[in-house]
Write a protein that binds this DNA or RNA. Sequence first.
DNA 1: ACAATTTTGTTGTAAATGCAACAGAAAGAG
DNA 2: CTCTTTCTGTTGCATTTACAACAAAATTGT
Lengths: 217, 217
Amino acid sequence: MEKNLSLLKRSALFLGVDEGEIESMLGCLGAKTQDYGKEEYVLREGDSPEAVGLLLSGGILIVQEDYWGNRNIRARIVPGQVFAEAFACVPGAVMDVSVLTDEKSRVLWLNVQRVLHTCPSACAHHSRMIRNLLSDLAENSLRANEKLTHISRRSTREKLLSYLSAEARRQGRAEFFIPFNRQQLADYLSVERSAMSAELSRMQRDGILSVDKNRFP
Amino acid sequence: MEKNLSLLKRSALFLGVDEGEIESMLGCLGAKTQDYGKEEYVLREGDSPEAVGLLLSGGILIVQEDYWGNRNIRARIVPGQVFAEAFACVPGAVMDVSVLTDEKSRVLWLNVQRVLHTCPSACAHHSRMIRNLLSDLAENSLRANEKLTHISRRSTREKLLSYLSAEARRQGRAEFFIPFNRQQLADYLSVERSAMSAELSRMQRDGILSVDKNRFP
DNA sequence: ACAATTTTGTTGTAAATGCAACAGAAAGAG
DNA sequence: CTCTTTCTGTTGCATTTACAACAAAATTGT
């Protein structure tokens, strides 16, 4: 659990809360961990989750599937990040996406409704948690906006460039890794995998970038 | 101002706050109104707004323009709605979109940082405001998600159907109006206007829908 | 190390989209 | 009302993408 605590301390949700306080807040939030195997559903379209998930280890994908199994990847969640917070914060909101693991994962479920509905003075840390949740939702909104920037581009090449330069900027160096394989990247950018592969080849031929598996440049 | 108050009372930000309290909160938030002409910038890409905007009258668009003036519309804000809240809530966040009026508009600027940074007990309504802001951000996130659903569709027809059925659902009846003209709708769905017009014609010919200007079906 | 499975890149063809140009309809100005 | 401007739909053509099928490369399990 020590390892988890250090992860929690660095997560957006527990920002500015020291380890001792985190433990008492976990009780307050009815925290429960749950383990999932590889490629297992964590939440399904149609669910109305009451708790937010905080990924402790592994990796999960937020995906949407249309009527004929065409899959669109909304985001990849890495350890320390929170998911389903918007649905958990809007009572009765029905998920139009599913959450599933990409690898063996462990999730910490936090019932934030308790924090939202009881008087903030009931627990000294409630207001801190609410403000952290607010920051998280705001950042979540900025991330969704960023994805909209990528997939609003008209051509596959522009989408790739938009995504890759954002990723390079985020990782803050010339060499960077992307958290997707080719099929997942195509599903993330809403393009066709083979066409995207071909485009990546042309971009390398044109000297715009170089790529070795998931390593750019 | 009475008219404004009744609008504010119905807005997400002041939900559950009665009129008398709203007036005192407005002082607390350093509220200022500002008027804008038709097609005037309210915020520009690169700005880091410190206040959230609440639209009192008129109509505004959240847009993103790429290097060659290709415009993408993120959302249309109608009176009572809030905008730029995610940027205002993440200190230092730089806008990657612009906000401009579609018609003559009046905006109420609210400095929410004061509410976020001082102790919640300083004003009895701070915690209410924070929770309302949280709800608003969560709903904002759901709306961004919804837009992602539309533009992730592969074909123009699918994008139109996804958007139009969502709009019909939201307005809760068979007959509904959309808040965009053809060019704006194309910019919203990231497709080409003339191709979209042609597709709308084909869809009518196929009996999928009927459309008269902005009225469906 | 080998076989089986999955992932990735390549190619050809059909279909869809972007673009440009234009004409009719609608809206706005005087 | 008339003229001007803006908006919308239509069409042809060049370009791009989706789809399917396949081969090469990499990964996994035994």
